[in-house]
Design a protein around this nucleic acid. Sequence first.
DNA 1: CTGTATCCTTAAGGATACTG
DNA 2: CAGTATCCTTAAGGATACAG
Lengths: 117, 117
Amino acid sequence: MATQLAEACPIVEVLDHVAGKWSIGIIVAAANGPVRFTELERTVEGISRRMLTLNLRKLERDGLLVRTVYPTVPPKVEYTLTDMARELYASLSGLLGWAERHRGEIACARAVYDAAS
Amino acid sequence: MATQLAEACPIVEVLDHVAGKWSIGIIVAAANGPVRFTELERTVEGISRRMLTLNLRKLERDGLLVRTVYPTVPPKVEYTLTDMARELYASLSGLLGWAERHRGEIACARAVYDAAS
DNA sequence: CTGTATCCTTAAGGATACTG
DNA sequence: CAGTATCCTTAAGGATACAG
């Protein structure tokens, strides 16, 4: 195992990278095997090409995504989750499940709150 | 159980509210019982008074936090997680654990990536 | 103590056009 | 196909001052 540099990377910063709207979308989209750029562009609802690129680079830099370039014409690039990211996906699934189960309740709470104000 | 209005509240929006840096910090800070405003201001690292207020309101509106005002002098306000939020906290804990376990690995990955560029 | 109000700065992100 | 580059708009957030 490598040096780890644990102090260099506070948890909040890690979460900030990983828990963002776009990051979650990308990780979920890549959970079932390698995905291509255009595929992500279509799958991750509402993301722009720019944001997709930026987030892919960020995730790759953090060691969550591996970028594989096939030198064909036209070019083909695949993004694959690393083991670390797969483990993350398990945690994210919990979060997603919670959101799914409670979205109705949340919508109600909002309606009540807004009505009271 | 109420009407649920499920369609009114897409999962990505729910996640956006709940997975933010400040929201996570507040929920974690409130996990061990009711907390007061100033307590949160000190506990949630780096949050400003303004951001704290805004996020508390948002979480309250979503039905994750209950705000209790004690009409004393000086005033005392306590924020308590709802059952729904407690369940969320369980999921967040998984995420936090992951971040804790992999922060070193992530720092390494970044160092490698940055060295290669 | 628990906020609100205002102003201001920075960063996130969209739109569009262009490239290997 | 898979991006990059540029410009521009909006939203997030900090600083400060004030109030119930």
